[in-house]
């Protein structure tokens, strides 16, 4: 069976700030990032759908010790975001100084942006990643 939304297709859309997901033909749940089966009911009856990219932060951390090859990125903030359509996804937050990230981030509404991780010697090419922006900033 064909993989409905392969990484490369998801990655290309995300580079243009478009977030693709999968809608389940069986239960209606949205799955993102893509996988073979519906995250809710395990059905393979999935169809590609564009998501809003809007959601709220559920948790965060500021990474001070980065993996080999990514030392110049640190410190950087990682967030998990609960999308309006349901799924949680992981991304970065570049909209504030990383040292100042605190518990008041949790619950803040955000909207989608993206950046590229060019990959390292162990990864198979570049990878786009969500870089969220505050949606409630004046």
């Amino acid at each position: 069976m064909e993989y409905k939304l392969p990484f490369r297709q998801y990655h290309k859309a995300l580079m243009k700030n478009q977030l693709l997901g999968l809608k389940c033909g069986n239960c209606g749940a949205i799955t993102c990032p893509p996988q073979m089966s519906c995250r809710s009911c395990s059905s393979y009856d999935l169809e590609v759908t564009q998501l809003s990219g809007n959601g709220k932060i559920t948790t965060y951390t500021t990474i001070f010790v980065a993996p080999e090859g990514r030392e110049t990125e640190a410190p950087y903030i990682i967030v998990m975001v609960e999308l309006d359509e349901g799924p949680w996804i992981m991304g970065n937050l570049y909209d504030m100084a990383p040292e100042r990230a605190g518990m008041d981030l949790i619950g803040r509404p955000v909207t989608l942006g993206s950046r590229i991780f060019p990959g390292d010697r162990y990864s198979d090419g570049p990878m786009a990643r969500p870089a969220f922006l505050f949606a409630d900033k004046a």
Partner: peptide, 25 residues
């Protein structure tokens, strides 16, 4: 996960750091 969670720079301490803040909230 290499494609969707290493891309934002997740480390193993980062995994439990995310859980620590989620736990508190």
């Amino acid at each position: 996960e290499a494609k969707y969670e290493f891309a934002p720079g997740l480390t193993f301490p980062g995994f439990f750091a995310l859980l620590a803040h989620l736990y508190a909230s």
